[in-house]
Amino acid sequence: MNLAMETKEFYFTYAGAEAPTLKGIDMPIYANKVTALIGPSGCGKSTLLRSWNRIHDVYPGNRYEGEILLYDKEGNEENILSYSKEDELIRLRQRVGMIFQKPTPFPMSIYDNIAYGLRLAGIKNRSELDGRVEKALKGAAIWNEVKDRLKQSAMGLSGGQQQRLCIARAVALKPELLLFDEPTSALDPISTGAIEELVTELKEEVTIAIVTHNMQQASRVSDYTAFMYLGDLIEFGKTEKIFVNPKEKLTEEYITGRFG
């Protein structure tokens, strides 16, 4: 099984904090699989996810230690924590996309939302843009709903549509890894179902890591699950294993709803 990313002895400390929020995380992310991060709030699951595209660097003063290796299709690895130049970070974020808790359509048209990242990446050719926008919207299962109003503002879409638009926007860049940070926490059950279905379909093309507070969601969509608690990775394994027969007592207590 191929690795997409590997986190080794990883510590993360927020700006101004004394103690690290993440304490020595070791975990793999396998290519073309869905990996779920679960755990009670404050356990560090979002912090970890946000380290994988170094979005923490938007704010000054945060500190990383350890290694996070990103593998390409040929198996060549790069330690993303060694990046220091802005162009390296830009390249990283084009390879590792991210979907946020709330839908984040930009204040522009549906078409421009999708084309935004492509234009940043230097694609100017109109027909190529059209093609990639259409492909991305189809890939995010929203094409039929928006194809007649591509020029309209993305703010007019429903919450669920906006979130699928954001997924399309990320997919358009053909990332290798997509990070989902509680992508359905602001959505109704039907939209949530649509997103989960989409996640399962997308893994043909792209590796996925998803933070969720919803354990049913983790068990429905993921192949691997990582359970975190107070900044430690308590247990990592196949999802069936974690949910049916966890090794650690803490995992079992969380899964069965004894705390959280």
Binding site: E86, D87, I90, L120, A121, G122
Partner: peptide, 13 residues
């Protein structure tokens, strides 16, 4: 780093 990328970074700076 291609030309577009370089221009973007320069402009940003």
């Amino acid at each position: 780093m291609n030309a577009t990328q370089r221009r973007r970074l320069l402009l940003n700076r």
